[in-house]
């Protein structure tokens, strides 16, 4: 049925249409927007949010929420920088430790949620404070320089390929493959759709939640390292508030906060919309204060349009 298929395509790719409209409008309004330098800049700006948001996509698909990703990103980056400089570890070991930190935070979140029966909002709100605090404790509140080898992650290969963008794309593919093709990924959709039915179908719900939040933590760690590399130093206050951008990106990308719906591609588009919007408003010299207003309106509009469209098709 072509009509159904095209309707479904629109429902899933409404965010793409919004992105296209935004790009066209900005290229008409500002002559600088479509320049290569600027577009690469947008990509780099989108990268950290997008990587965090891919991690959040797993969580939101299961019907949960992860408020701790910004803090976990900072803690992971601080862990890397501190163990490499103060601790004197070789940088690959520091990278592994940093990822392990992210995973560990995620596992604690999941344990509180799956076994302690805390609502995800509360468990990850606690972790938001704990991880941020630990980052400040370890760093004693000051930025720590990133090891030389790792900070190349912030470079641009040749003239056209910023490594953060590359990392973003790789993480996006990884997220898409996990969601679409693996057992934990498919189980996440089932749990978000109906947790009890998933459990009565033999899906080990608690175990899948461990995987889900661990993935979110791991993605947060990668985002934290990419961010620190761009800044050449790990900062304990980095990525504060990014969890909200990540959630916004996922939701703009068509996921439902009640679970069972969401795609990596949608999340990427959501993150790009946020980045394009911020960049465009800068180019148009809109004050930073007004930018926040505009972005808030866009988030509300994006979800509103999506909700109305769904209501229309049902």
């Amino acid at each position: 049925m072509p009509s159904k298929r095209s309707a479904a395509w629109l429902a899933e790719n409404g965010a793409v249409a919004a992105l296209v409209v935004l790009v066209v409008a900005l290229s008409l309004l500002s002559s600088d927007f479509l320049s290569l330098t600027n577009l690469l800049n947008v990509g780099v700006q989108a990268a950290v949010t997008a990587i965090l948001a891919f991690g959040s996509t797993f969580v939101i698909v299961t019907g949960g929420i992860d408020l701790s990703v910004g803090s976990v990103a900072a803690l992971s980056a601080i862990t890397l920088a501190w163990t490499a400089t103060e601790g004197g570890l070789p940088w690959p070991a520091a990278v592994v430790l940093s990822l392990a930190t992210g995973v560990a935070c995620g596992l604690v979140n999941a344990a509180l949620i799956a076994y302690g029966k805390l609502p995800p909002f509360i468990a990850t709100l606690a972790m938001l404070g704990i991880a941020r605090g630990l980052a400040l404790v370890i760093s004693q509140g000051s930025p720590i320089a990133m090891p030389e080898a790792v900070s190349h992650l912030g470079d641009t290969v040749g003239r056209f390929l910023p490594i953060p963008v590359l990392v973003m794309l790789v993480m996006g593919v990884v997220a898409a493959v996990i969601l679409n093709r693996t057992y934990p990924g498919r189980a996440m959709y089932a749990i978000g759709g109906n947790e009890e039915a998933a459990r009565l179908s033999g899906i080990k719900v608690s175990r899948i939640k461990l995987v889900t939040y661990a993935l979110s933590g791991a993605f947060a760690a990668v985002a934290g390292v990419v961010l620190a590399s761009r800044l050449a130093s790990a900062q304990p206050q980095a990525a504060a508030g990014y969890e909200l951008d990540a959630i916004a990106a996922v939701v703009i990308g068509g996921a439902s906060l009640s679970g069972g719906k969401g795609r990596a591609l949608g999340t990427l588009v959501g993150a790009l919309i946020l980045a394009v919007l911020r960049n465009g408003l800068n180019l148009l010299s809109v004050s930073a204060f007004w930018q926040q207003v505009v972005i808030g309106v866009v988030i509300a509009l994006a979800v509103l349009v999506d909700t109305l469209r769904r209501r229309g098709t049902n």
């Binding site: 759709g193 109906n194 009890e196 998933a198």
Partner: peptide, 13 residues
């Protein structure tokens, strides 16, 4: 509906 099915998913899933 409450325990047997994921209502928002398709028949194949």
């Amino acid at each position: 509906k409450g325990q047997g099915l994921v209502l928002g998913a398709d028949i194949g899933e």
